[in-house]
Simulated assay, not measured.
Amino acid sequence: MSPTLPRNHPPLTTPKTGVLLVNLGTPDGHDVKSMRRYLGEFLSDTRVIEAPKWLWWPILHGIILNTRPKKSGAAYRKIWMTETDESPLRHYTRAQAQELAPRLEAEGVIVDWAMRYGSPSLAQGIDSLCNRGCQRILLMPLYPQYSAATTASVVDKANAHLARLRRQPATRVLPTFHDEPSYIRALGDSVRAALKDGPEPDRLLCSFHGMPRETLDKGDPYHCFCQKTARLLREDLGWPQDRFQVVFQSRFGPKEWLQPYAEPTVAGLAKEGVKSIAMISPGFVSDCVETLEELAIGLRETFEENGGDRFTYIPCLNATPPMIDLLETLARRELGGWI
């Protein structure tokens, strides 16, 4: 039986559900000021830099934030989308949300997007959904391979913001999807599409963002998840092990990171006489400075300078139909019981 409402009481409405796509982050511009603000937030995260504050902060504020913004800004400048004045990561994350939204609209689901670092912030994304009537929110960190430095950081930041709210929405968090069949199939199809018009490369390199080696020693599952993604992708492609290799990119600082390192591996292959390689980066669902500048530009130059002939960069899934299909599959699974 429907409840009896007092006269002039607004009609009862079904609570809305929100989906918030969350990616790593992006500066607002490639100028030094924007880069310093972005790097300051990113490198202040204790999930990213696991060092005592008394040791790290003098290094961060006394050295890194006075030297790195200019260098990082130059890298962003090479891949900046001048027509819309934004980074590719912002462009593709917004596009993913816009393409996913109509697929869930009939169930009363509102889709939005946010960044862990930079804008729109995670707090802004949560508040935006709450202000539109969402009493349930599914957070979808767009990191296929879970790591404490990525997915856990999103959860930490979201919970810190929720702790300040008088009325909190119910929340869920998308788990790791490193071995999701539709994700592996989409990666395999992207490789086949990229290589269909030419001879197969001598090697296919599967590059993941690096992490300090100590994170693995402490029990972070990221390295294992990367290896499983790569194995499943190789099996989907049917490639032999001797032509398929996992590498790790984006080293930072003096500590040992996960190996083998991407740059010396690429240089070594060229010097050994390998004339053609292709590279894919399955740890990213959207192209960004790490893929477009570091891999597609930087490692191409490394390969060619050391004697290589043909370097093929395979783009991320971005906002392609297979990527939106994947997001819909993941969202519907995690929204079970809510819609």
Results as ranks from 00 to 15, higher is better:
Pro254Gly: 12
Trp54Lys: 04
Thr67Gln: 14
Gly73Cys: 13
Asn306Ala: 03
Ile339Arg: 00
Ser207Thr: 09
Arg251Leu: 07
Arg167Pro: 09
Thr13Tyr: 14
Ser250Arg: 03
Ala267Lys: 00
Gln135Asp: 15
Pro102Lys: 06
Ala230Cys: 12
Glu214Leu: 15
Leu138Glu: 06
Leu165His: 07
Cys134Asn: 12
Glu107Val: 07
Ser207Val: 08
Thr329Ser: 10
Gln249Met: 10
Thr312Ala: 06
Val191Tyr: 01
Ala101Gln: 10
Arg47Gln: 12
Cys226Pro: 04
Glu200Trp: 14
Ile297Leu: 15
Lys16Met: 15
Glu328Ile: 00
Leu327Thr: 00
Thr84Ile: 11
Arg234Pro: 03
Leu317Glu: 02
Phe42Ser: 06
Phe244Ile: 10
Pro322Met: 06
Gly336Met: 10
Ser250Val: 06
Asp236Leu: 09
Ala170Lys: 03
Glu105Asn: 12
Leu216Ile: 12
Gly308Glu: 03
Leu21Ser: 11
His9Gly: 09
Thr150His: 03
Arg203Leu: 11
Ala114Ile: 07
Ser250Gln: 06
His30Leu: 14
Arg234Thr: 07
Leu187Tyr: 02
Ile339Phe: 13
Lys275Ser: 04
Leu174Thr: 01
Phe311Asn: 00
Met279Pro: 01
Tyr143Pro: 04
Leu43Ala: 09
Ile126Ser: 05
Val173Ala: 01
Val191Ala: 02
Lys33Val: 14
His30Gly: 06
Glu272Met: 03
Ala270Cys: 03
Ala148Ser: 13
Glu301Ile: 02
Asp179Thr: 11
Ser153His: 00
Leu335Pro: 03
Asp197Phe: 08
Arg90Gly: 05
Thr150Ile: 11
Met35Arg: 01
Gly125Gln: 07
Ser128Ile: 05
Thr176Cys: 14
Pro260Gly: 05
Gln124Leu: 09
Lys255Cys: 08
Pro221Gln: 03
Ala170Tyr: 12
Ile79Asn: 09
Cys226Phe: 11
Gln145Lys: 02
Leu187Gln: 02
Arg36Phe: 14
Tyr92Leu: 11
Glu293Phe: 13
Arg47Tyr: 14
Leu205Ser: 01
Pro199Gln: 08
Ala75Glu: 11
His61Cys: 14
Lys275Glu: 08
Gly283Met: 05
Trp56Gly: 10
Ile314Ser: 00
Ile59Thr: 09
Thr302Trp: 08
Lys228Glu: 12
Asp112Thr: 06
Thr67Asp: 12
Lys53Ala: 15
His178Gln: 05
Ser207Cys: 15
Gln145Thr: 04
Pro212Lys: 02
Asp156Ile: 09
Pro199Phe: 04
Glu293Ser: 08
Gly273Trp: 00
Phe208Gly: 02
Gly238Lys: 04
Leu122Gln: 04
Gln259Ala: 15
Met35Tyr: 14
Pro181Gln: 05
Val266Gln: 01
Leu232Cys: 09
Ala75Gln: 09
Arg172Gln: 14
